[in-house]
Design a protein around this nucleic acid. Structure first.
Length: 949
RNA sequence: GCUCGAGUGGUGGAAUUGGUAGACACGUUGGACUUAAAAUCCAAUGGCCAUUAUGGCCGUGCGGGUUCAAGUCCCGCCUCGAGUACCA
């Protein structure tokens, strides 16, 4: 009987689904383990072989943990709001919900076909109102919270109001807008309700504000910083411009330090942690105020408040080297301080910079431009006047949008000073600055700087901050690059905000009325008045049953109030989904405390690194907020994270003779002027030979084509690049499953190389693991291969040893997430057992269990044929027994490959028990590194020590 | 520029704690079986040299160093990849 993988796989997939084999309960005596995949966006193209890589790895781990006796939570769902379905809707008029539903069906079929052990009873979809109800709920909690810096956590806004009533805001240490005025209790009480609402908005963790946003005209929406790559939109590559708009924002900056600190306690890949740390961009320095001393642009100078320029610097120690100030052209003081004589030049410069797009600015960063304002600032210590310039190398969006320029210590200031012939005073001891600035702060000795002379960077910084504080002109400050996250999108296919407006001030829809369901619209484009697509809606509903219908507005039966017409961004739905899986059908709460306290956090999270500064940062922020609220027991939701590498495609390239319909084989292309064209990889065999007959059928332009062959063949070029439809290099898992089976595909994807690494797909190689599975099958079908045969005899020594070598190595490999080498180990094992003609039940049964996480279908079938009832997935993983040789008072582990990895000296006189104890102690430290604990050591006659673990 | 990561056969990669470099697989070559093909099985496969056989030398990007022992640790380079970027 041959290995009929198609029948076997269909049979067991049906069995698992009918028996709810992988359904997880929120309780039990077993220890819990939570394995999570980043849920997919269900795109219309379906899965290609690259997508399941991470799912296969997490599935192997989940299945392994079940064999190890854990209660495993391994859910899956869909991040089903998104742009492609909406753009498809704009083109075709088909509702995104329908497109999404269809795509989900395809995804589900493809996922099922691969034999994943997901608990589908816990499926969530971000576009489902029963799910996004809780996304809206979190939004409301954020709106009703502020960030208390003294207690370093979020707190209810009601407490803040109480503080304002009592003492105003002078005693409040909050994360709030920079322009928040100081007010007394009396002033607070005097404010109108609306003014109070406006003030509170400056404190709320989600707030409405006029923000300079990244507007993408082609997509008709704003984008977050992490959605822009090289000045163009991540999706589609469209240009992005800066624009002021009233938008919802998330006060993620309040959590900057905690997001940074939290990185230290989670086991995430270093590159990912680095990316987040860079994105947060903490820099330590000082904030310094420089008095502006004129001359004034006009007579209207404000007599009450003396204007000053506030700067942030990481080098306050170099303050005596500041020979000019530079403001961003957009800085608000520019029009105010510019002298009449310079006004024309300055305004021309400001206008010119405003016209330049982000891209242009990036394109020529080396061009030095700027203008003198005619104004001067006063040095806080020397009281000398310092000229104030403007220049576009100073960014309005970072720090205060103004710098004190120290040309001797900063290369950009140096270049600017050189260009505009501004003096470059040298304040460093023994350093030559005639060619470039000296920025090595660790080797700095300050000179010509009054009370700082002779000090190091560290000493000088400390001293100058003290002096500035004495003057009331500065203080130590930590600045972050992280910006608050814009949360509004001018799109249809996203979560509606649970918000309506009274007198232009936002109000939350009462929680009991959630969800506010996404309304139907006629068309998915902005309205004629420029409102987002939701402005087209005529009927809104609280929820499908209640149907409190309103017309673009909300009514309380007396008045009508407009609703928020923006929707939430893509990352909203993915910021708490991992917790919702714990209790996905709860209609009363986002999740019960019982469920969250049982599962606590994700133990293993697998997904792509592309979400480093998006989803993976935002979700950590929401988790910390939920922690502050007391909703979750831990403030980091994923203990360990692995970024799986991308599987790349190997494109096939044709060389067309320029301007002709002639194609030349790769080896002969040097003789021609050619251009490259990509063709479907399915038309090319493993030796890079093109099937010309098929090509002519593939696309009409090749029908009449001529081919210049070498040795009678057309050889294509190859290029390893990202798998994509447009490059015709996509390999579909359906075809692979059909030809080799899901078990072969699963094992092969693991075999390709380390999980974390990017690697090209090569279909030819799959025959290796496929023949391994056939060999495994034949192990149980000895003789002519027609009968299923196992022997109940005691296994031979060799067969037993082969098995235990395998158990040991597979456990070690899994502990290191080195799935690729464990597949090799299985292959060696099966080769060895084949050579030994092994038929022992005592070996074959444990072997089936070992292989079950990797190739679950064949393992189930073999388990059944061995006479067992029920799924193999619940059978305990076989225990490893290693042998240790005691000889000449030394213990030698007889390891897997016969290498003597360590030896242990034993005293001459030693009892059997003492040897056991000594070896156990030694092994404990060794094995703990691999996540295993030896339980028992047995010294058996014949100078052999056994360890059972 | 800055940050991080990686360089091992024809290819993907292995060597988990400093201990026989190249496991395992692909590919290639030869052979068995077959009318033939497919499938399957067996053998060889880092380079150079040598041979009657046992063999010898070189070899993990480059140059140094530590060590009884280095792909692995240290110092200095080179190349490639990823992220980020006028961040004060």
């Amino acid at each position: 009987m041959g290995y009929k993988f198609r029948e076997i796989e269909a049979k067991w997939q049906k069995y698992w689904s009918e028996h709810l084999t992988f359904k997880a309960e929120n309780n039990g005596e077993k220890e819990k383990y939570y394995v999570l995949d980043m849920f997919p966006y269900p795109s219309g193209a379906g899965l290609h072989v690259g997508h399941p890589l991470g799912y296969i790895a997490s599935d192997i781990y989940a299945r392994y943990k079940r064999h190890k006796g854990f209660n495993v939570l391994h859910p899956q769902g869909y991040d089903s709001f998104g742009l492609p379905a909406e753009q498809y809707a704009i083109q075709t008029g088909q509702h995104p919900a329908i497109t999404t539903e269809e795509n989900i069906k395809t995804y589900r079929r493809q996922l099922d076909q691969l034999g994943f052990s997901f608990d589908w009873s816990r499926e969530v979809r971000t576009s489902d109102p029963t799910y996004y109800r809780w996304t809206q709920w979190v939004f409301i909690q954020l709106f009703n919270s502020w960030y208390d810096r003294d207690r370093d956590k979020a707190a209810p806004i009601s407490g803040l109001i109480a503080a304002f009533v009592k003492n105003g805001n002078s005693g409040v240490n909050a994360s709030c807008d920079d322009d928040t005025p100081t007010f007394t209790a009396a002033a607070w009480k005097k404010c109108t309700h609306r003014q109070q609402q406006e003030l509170l908005l400056k404190y709320r963790l989600t707030y409405l504000a006029d923000t300079e946003v990244n507007w993408c005209p082609a997509l008709g929406t704003v984008l977050a910083n992490d959605e822009i790559v090289n000045g163009v939109s991540e999706r589609g590559g469209h240009p992005v411009v800066r624009k002021k708009m009233t938008q919802w924002s998330m006060r993620i900056t309040a959590y900057a330090q905690r997001l940074l600190d939290g990185l230290e306690k989670i086991d995430w890949p270093q590159p990912l942690k680095d990316a987040q740390a860079n994105w947060i961009g903490r820099s330590v320095g000082a904030s310094i105020k420089f008095k502006v001393i004129g001359p004034w642009a006009d007579a209207e100078k404000d007599p009450e408040t003396e204007p000053y320029i506030e700067v942030f610097t990481t080098r306050p120690d170099t303050i005596f080297g500041a020979s000019f100030m530079t403001l961003a052209p957009e800085h608000e003081l520019v029009p105010k301080i510019t002298s009449p004589g310079q006004r024309k030049e300055v305004m021309a410069y400001v206008e010119a910079t405003a016209k330049r797009s982000e891209r242009d600015r990036l394109a020529d960063v080396n061009r030095i431009t700027g203008a003198f304002t005619g104004a001067y600032a006063e040095h806080p210590f020397t009281k000398e006047p310092i000229p104030i310039w403007i220049g576009d190398y100073v960014l309005a969006g970072y720090g205060t949008g103004a710098v004190m320029s120290v040309p001797c210590g900063d290369q950009r200031d140096y270049d600017f000073a050189r260009h505009f012939k501004i003096p470059i005073p040298n304040i460093f001891e023994g350093v030559d600055i005639s060619e470039e600035a000296f920025a090595d702060k660790e080797n700095t000795i300050i000179a010509r700087s009054d009370f700082l002379n002779g000090l190091s960077y560290r000493e000088a910084t400390k001293k100058v901050i003290t002096e500035l504080e004495n003057l009331g002109q500065g203080h130590g400050k930590i600045n972050y690059r992280l910006r608050d996250a814009v949360f509004s999108r001018q799109r249809y296919w996203g979560e509606p905000f649970p918000v309506y407006y009274v007198d232009g001030m936002p109000q939350m829809i009462p929680e009991e009325h959630l969800p506010l369901v996404l309304p139907e619209v006629e068309k998915y484009l902005p309205t004629e008045t420029g409102d987002p697509p939701l402005g087209n809606a005529t009927e809104w509903a609280w929820d499908r049953e209640q149907s409190a219908v309103v017309n673009k507005q909300l009514t309380d039966h007396k008045n009508v109030f407009p609703l928020e017409l923006n929707t939430m961004p893509g990352w909203a739905g993915s910021s708490q989904y991992f917790n919702r899986y714990m209790d996905p059908h709860n209609e009363n709460e986002i999740f019960s405390q019982e469920a969250i306290n049982y599962w606590r956090e994700v133990d293993l999270y697998i997904g792509g690194i592309e979400h480093a500064t998006g989803h993976l940062l935002y979700s950590r922020f929401w988790q910390k907020f939920m922690f502050d609220l007391g909703q979750v027991p831990v403030d980091e939701y994923a203990r360990k994270l692995i970024n799986q590498g991308m599987i790349l495609g190997t494109s096939a390239i044709l060389y067309r003779v320029s301007g002709e319909n002639r194609y030349v084989s790769k080896g002969l292309m040097a003789d021609f002027d050619v251009e490259e064209l990509r063709v479907d990889v399915g038309l090319v065999n493993a030796s890079d030979e093109l099937d010309i007959v098929e090509l002519k059928l593939w696309q009409p332009q090749y029908k009449e084509a001529e081919f210049i062959l070498e040795n009678g063949k057309y050889i294509v070029g190859r290029e390893v690049e990202k798998m994509s439809k447009s490059k015709y290099n996509v390999v579909n898992p359906d075809a692979i499953c059909e030809e080799y089976g899901a078990d072969s595909l699963r094992m092969y994807e693991m075999f390709l190389g380390p999980l974390e690494q990017a690697k090209p797909w090569n279909t030819a190689g799959i025959t290796g693991v496929h023949s391994f599975l056939k060999k495994l099958w034949r192990l149980y079908h000895s003789g002519q291969g027609t009968t299923f045969k196992v022997s109940d005899d005691e296994p031979s020594k060799e067969a037993f040893k082969t098995l235990h070598k395998t158990i040991k190595k597979v456990e070690e490999d899994i502990a290191h997430f080195s799935f690729n080498t464990s597949v090799s180990t299985f292959m060696i094992c099966v080769n060895d057992l084949t050579a030994l003609k092994c038929t022992y039940r005592g070996v074959l049964e444990p072997l089936a269990i070992l292989i079950s996480p990797y190739a679950p279908h064949i393992a189930e079938e073999l388990w059944m044929l061995l006479g067992h009832k029920g799924s193999i997935s619940k059978v305990p993983f076989p225990a490893f027994e290693a042998r240790y040789l005691v000889e000449d008072h030394k213990v030698y582990p007889i390891s897997f490959n016969g290498k003597m990895r360590f030896t242990m000296e034993l005293p001459l006189e030693m009892s059997k028990e003492d040897i056991e104890e000594a070896v156990l102690a030694h092994e404990k430290t060794r094995l703990q590194l691999q996540g295993r604990t030896p339980k028992k050591v047995i010294v058996v006659p014949g100078k052999i020590v056994n360890i059972v673990g």
